[in-house]
Design a protein around this nucleic acid. Sequence first.
DNA 1: TTATATTTGCTAACACTGTTATTTTAACAT
DNA 2: ATGTTAAAATAACAGTGTTAGCAAATATAA
Lengths: 200, 200
Amino acid sequence: MGIAERRLRQKEEVRSAILSSAWKMVKEEGWQSLSIRKIADAIEYSIPVIYNHFENKEAILLEFTKEGFQKLANKMAATRNKYKEPCKQLEAMANTYWDFAFDHKEYYQLMFGLGIPACDRVNQVAEMKALTVIMISSIEEAIAVSKNPDADHFLKYHTYWSILHGLVSIQMIEKEGKPDPSKKLILKDAISGFIKSLME
Amino acid sequence: MGIAERRLRQKEEVRSAILSSAWKMVKEEGWQSLSIRKIADAIEYSIPVIYNHFENKEAILLEFTKEGFQKLANKMAATRNKYKEPCKQLEAMANTYWDFAFDHKEYYQLMFGLGIPACDRVNQVAEMKALTVIMISSIEEAIAVSKNPDADHFLKYHTYWSILHGLVSIQMIEKEGKPDPSKKLILKDAISGFIKSLME
DNA sequence: TTATATTTGCTAACACTGTTATTTTAACAT
DNA sequence: ATGTTAAAATAACAGTGTTAGCAAATATAA
């Protein structure tokens, strides 16, 4: 009896229709504007049909999150296998990581919960500049007494800040709510590396 | 006539009641569950009253974002002023930054748009581990041939990843949508610094 | 003091969101 | 053709941000 098979096949078609039209909407208008109702409209089924394929909206997002990590992992593996020297690998992988993030911005935002609304907000905040000034002043002084006094202030400041933010947000994403003071070693490690490289 | 003054004072009281009860709710249940209706309930006014003080919900969030950057800038300035050597300043400021983020998690999440829902999600994603394995393998090889082969693999991996993520997300927050290939210099700079420090 | 403005705050509604209980429709097996 | 089962639709519930329209309290002017 091919009936059950056909039914399964049709069910699978609806499922992939949900995902593909969801993805289309996300690429067009971002995660914020993705809604169950719009998906239902797009696939020309009623709303509850979607809940026969996914437990809830979060499950749909989880699907894309997994996809994103898979894609990134594949790209990273491919890059690593191009080089034999581990240092070259780390360098090239960093490039691959960067390119993935901006080539597949939607994936990256979802994977790391980069709230898109804040992007608009943070640019309106003049108060951020005060922070910049403070951080950059120490950078400038450090560069002045370093062995390479011609280094780019803004670049080094940006690097410094990015390292800090990366450490914090990876930590926040990984363990919700746990401070884990031992993780401060990572901070110490990264910053001492940065300063060492800053002073040459 | 003190009437206008009293009115202004009363209006200011309502405004600060909005902010303080909003903040209370955020600390108790996170940004996700903050709603205009709940604020109205808490201050014992009707909903539209809130719109007499803030144009919309975003404006309330913007208020806290500004507050967050001010607080952080103050702390950073205080820390910097404790030290004379710029390297010490950078080191101490990194600590201050870290502490602020976790002592005032709510601020930090808002300031950098760390979508809280993703935190629950990312931990469910087994696919993330594949990525970890790939990154960590190169780190291990690099450590093995470095001058300090006893370095902590996991710590160095975490540092590597955090630098990458920090660079990407700061870049995404700063310029919405613009790839800006010149910013890849920052990546090159940070990663070469990391590798240098990794190899000793 | 009374009448007229004005401000102020409320109720109710609109247009959305995710989610689900209920009912109808359709497909299949006997 | 009839009974059974699976599928899908309607309609509703409980939320969300936001706003129009109206009633009441207050301040100003006559």
